[in-house]
Design a protein around this nucleic acid. Structure first.
Length: 844
RNA sequence: GCGGAAGUGGCGGAACUGGCAGACGCGCAGGACUUAGGAUCCUGUGGCCGCGAGGCCGUGGGGGUUCAACUCCCCCCUUCCGCACCA
């Protein structure tokens, strides 16, 4: 008797698959294409159970799709730029490239070990010039179209990373990589991508994603884009010189505010500016306490960026000494500076209506600003300013609002906005929470930004023919100060491509999210050296049919990727609006309640599981332990059950397969079995029922935990019928064991191949083999029907399936026990559900 | 504060469209085989009462709809996640 040796079986099939190249996919008009993608991993060095789960889910689906006859593109690559490599270099002196490549080699070997069905010919690594030159190429195209621009601005600065962070990379006021380090505000010149230009497209195209993407991801993205409709209004500044129409810059004569509640404007008690507002210097100018005002503003400014305690921080501000005029009421209102007014949203200034906005209310209370009531509730008691404990922020009816008094809020908003426009004091405006994407990073290990600064010509793009701008090797990394590339004269000092004069290269590198924003297009044509890809190949493979990854990328990566796709569409490179048709967010793998990460020291390596139990066992267990969308607390105890199961299955097959290898495939087809005995019917029925439900799991719900459970049940049934060869003809047995093996194939592929071979097959079972269940064989002949009295189970009877209602009821009443219980009772009602139950309702 | 997800045995989880709650697995208990078992096989395993047949209770809590509710409706509690002074 042979013993199941996972290591040997897995090595054998791994090599065969490799030799045959069974997972390589090329365009094929004869078969439906299926592009399945798992999120690009960062090569940290350890392939942990979180990765493992992601790839196991993907691989099960990839294998299933192949068995269903699809031409499956299933690629993988490495998100190889990024800070950890640089930090490792600083700490250990290993060049980032060496560290990264060693990690890739390590993780790749684990992927190969697990037999994930990737087309390795398409492997990419984003730190290779062959890849990142196209990052540069895209940047240049965006620069040409005004989608990339340079701006001096306040940025989020992580003192640990020594670099700028995008808004999306700030979490609870801290760096997304260092949750113990608050982000600092710093003013710096950097490159931005104009993602805001696509805000509406990003929002509107979501209709294409409805149904295919998890609802919560769409909601998160919608909130992130944060579209809101309102009114932009101009409050003239008292004592300011009249604005010259010809003069674009200089002291403006008015303050612009944005509001969604123009109906409350007669209650405006002040105008409040952000501490970073551009008009502050001109407002302070000429005032005796100017120095003090500027000092105050700069103190508040230090904390205007997103911060952990910002939402709860006490409101603070000061009066600028200047006044503005309410354009509707003509009233004079003081101009204040307030820490709660965001510089980067709307116009960076608000009209304060304390009676009808909670923030303004708190500010007004603290600084004794009046709060006139101008909106009254439609129903209920009238509001009186002196009695208010909080702002009344609902819609209502206008009072004390001049000609608008009596209107409802909704009507007033419409009319007042139209009037503002007519009078030239304002207009309707849509604003977004989404901000442009700051992509400059003062780091070494990233894509160089392909720009040269020339004293004569200004910002000069590197010509396409000079791409890639290569990242120099052997750069000294200290982790201090500005971009490490600035210390490499050979890199920095170049001739201006335009005038040939002395130029200086940009020394910042790109945010690594650029790399992952378009990598999936590259998989379609990974070795193209003349273009990022051949549009015809992308046309064949796209859109991605199924993308699988962690929920943590719901915003960052997935919004950037959608943005890139839209830019590419405008460049004429692709035809699609959205790159990903279906998205699946798998749950995290937790250990001790936290996500696995090196810094927390709770990493469970996939390779350890492979060595201890075998890859198939590890795969099966990750699918079995929980439905894939749920978080999974890693617990090694349960894995034993899967190991036991696979050993048991192997022994079962080993007992019976040798006698079956000669049975012809034709004789064991569902339709060719002929009259079956009762025991044969039980086995065939269980097999076909299992197939029906496992197929349904793969097609729709992806609840692979139940698929595994069903397969276990089938094996238990077989076990209960030992000795099988005494109860069933060889062709029946062969059919059942084959179905079992095929169903196992996406989940435990190595063992399935081995079993398939044991059953007498010469060829690998990869292509187009997924069986069709037989409805006839799956059908139950007898069913157990529950008999209830007043909803309580009082008996069970076994009847022929499909027994008509009347007969079923008769049978129920005829049951001796039921008869006895019903004796003397008055039957009020009976409910009969064929094949399920009979409920008799009796009067109490 | 706003938005979302989820609460079922000792544990992971099942129950597809309202129809036997606890599939499957872990763990645990007992037994068989064995020099041995942490291998394998068999039996049992939500709680309470009962020798037993059986009965009662039970899906976070409280109401409701229904012949029938883990599932639908209302209120509340808890946990997790996302956003958060967005005007």
């Amino acid at each position: 008797m042979a013993e199941y040796n996972p290591q040997a079986v897995e090595a054998k099939w791994r090599e065969k698959w490799d030799a045959l190249g069974v997972f390589n996919a090329d365009p094929d008009p004869a078969r439906p294409k299926y592009y399945l993608l798992e999120m690009l991993p960062y090569p940290s060095g350890t392939l942990h159970m979180g990765h493992m789960r992601n790839y196991t889910i993907g691989d099960a689906v990839a294998r299933y799709r192949r068995m269903r006859g699809s031409n499956v593109l299933h690629p993988i690559g490495w998100d190889a730029f990024g800070l950890p490599a640089e930090n490792a270099a600083i700490k250990r002196g290993t060049p980032p490239r060496d560290w990264t490549n060693a990690n890739i080699a390590q993780m790749k070997s684990v992927c190969r070990r697990f037999g994930f069905s990737y087309d390795w010919r398409r492997e990419i690594s984003t730190c290779e010039p062959e890849y990142y030159r196209w990052n540069q190429w895209f940047f240049l195209r965006m620069l040409e179209r005004g989608l990339a621009y340079r701006k001096r601005s306040l940025v989020n600065w992580c003192p640990k990373c020594q670099t700028v962070l995008a808004n999306e990379q700030v979490v609870d006021g801290c760096c997304w990589q260092h949750d113990d380090t608050p982000v600092e505000a710093k003013e710096i010149e950097q490159w931005f991508l104009r993602i805001t230009q696509y805000a509406d497209a990003l929002l509107e195209d979501m209709v294409e994603l409805e149904g295919g993407w998890p609802e919560r991801v769409l909601i998160m993205q919608r909130n992130w884009i944060g579209k809101s409709h309102g009114t932009r209004l101009r409050f003239p500044i008292e004592g300011a010189p009249a604005e010259k129409p010809t003069e674009k810059k200089g002291a403006k004569a008015h303050i612009e505010v944005f509001t969604t509640r123009v109906d409350t404007i007669f209650g405006a008690a002040a105008v409040i500016l952000s501490p970073a507002h551009e008009l502050l210097p001109s407002l302070f100018a000429g005032q005796p306490n100017r120095a003090k005002l500027e000092e105050e503003a700069s103190r508040l400014r230090a904390r205007i960026l997103r911060g952990a305690d910002l939402a709860t921080a006490e409101k603070e501000g000061f009066f600028t000494g200047r006044f503005a005029t309410n354009p509707f009421s003509g009233e004079k209102v003081p101009i204040w500076v307030g820490n709660f007014v965001l510089a980067e949203y709307g116009t960076g200034a608000v009209m304060a209506v304390p009676a009808h906005d909670q923030r303004d209310f708190e500010f007004a209370q603290k600084y004794k600003i009046p709060f006139p009531v101008v909106i009254q509730p439609v129903e209920g008691a009238s509001l009186r300013a002196e009695k208010m404990k909080e702002a009344f922020t609902d819609y209502g009816r206008l009072v004390n609002s001049g000609p608008y008094s009596g209107l409802t809020s909704a009507a007033a908003i419409e009319k007042m906005t139209a009037d503002a426009q007519a009078k030239g004091i304002g207009e309707a405006q849509t604003t977004y929470r989404l901000k442009d994407w700051g992509i400059s990073r003062q780091r070494y290990w990233g894509t160089p930004i392909p720009v040269i600064y020339c004293a004569q010509c200004g910002i000069v793009p590197v010509p396409d023919k000079d791409l890639p701008v290569r990242l120099p090797e052997n750069v000294l990394l200290t982790g201090q100060g500005q971009s490490p590339l600035a210390n490499v004269p050979a890199f920095v000092n170049v001739k201006c491509p335009k005038c040939g004069g002395p130029g200086r290269r940009e020394t910042d590198t790109m945010d690594t999210f650029i790399d992952s924003s378009w990598y999936f297009f590259r998989y379609a044509d990974p070795h193209n050296d003349r273009a990022p890809f051949d549009p015809a190949l992308v046309r064949y493979w796209f859109p991605i049919d199924q993308y699988i990854g962690g929920i943590e990328h719901a915003i960052l990566h997935l919004i950037y990727s959608r943005f890139f796709c839209k830019v590419m569409r405008d460049l004429g490179l692709v035809e699609i609006r959205e790159p990903v048709r279906r998205l699946f967010s798998q749950g995290m793998v937790l250990k001790d309640g936290a996500k696995m990460s090196k810094s927390k020291g709770n990493v469970v390596g996939a390779i350890d599981m492979a060595e201890k139990y075998g890859c198939d066992t590890a795969r099966m267990y990750t699918l079995f332990a929980a439905p894939p969308e749920k978080d999974l607390e890693w617990n090694e105890q349960g894995i034993e059950g899967c190991a036991r199961f696979l050993h048991r299955l192997f022994r079962l097959m080993d007992r019976h397969a040798p006698a079956l290898s000669g049975v012809s495939a034709r004789d064991s087809q569902p339709g060719k079995i002929g009259a079956a005995s009762q025991k044969e019917k039980v086995l065939l029925r269980k097999a076909h029922q299992t197939l029906r439900r496992v197929t349904a799991d793969f097609e729709a719900r992806w609840h692979f935990n139940t698929s595994v459970a069903l397969i276990m049940e089938l094996v238990n049934t077989l076990h209960d019928h030992e000795p099988l060869d005494k109860h069933a003809r060889p062709e029946v047995l062969k059919q059942v064991l084959e179905l079992l093996t095929l169903m196992l194939a996406p989940i435990a592929p190595h063992l399935a191949e081995e079993l398939w071979e044991m059953l007498g097959h010469q060829e690998s079972l990869n292509a187009g083999e997924w069986p069709q269940y037989s409805a006839e064989l799956a059908e139950e002949e007898q069913v157990e029907v529950v008999i209830q009295i007043n909803g309580r189970v009082r008996g069970k009877i076994c009847v022929d399936a499909g027994l008509p209602e009347e007969e079923l009821a008769e049978r129920a009443f005829a049951d001796p026990k039921i008869e006895q219980l019903l004796r003397g009772a008055r039957v009020v009602k009976r409910v009969v559900v064929p094949d399920k139950l009979v409920n008799v309702v009796v009067a109490q």
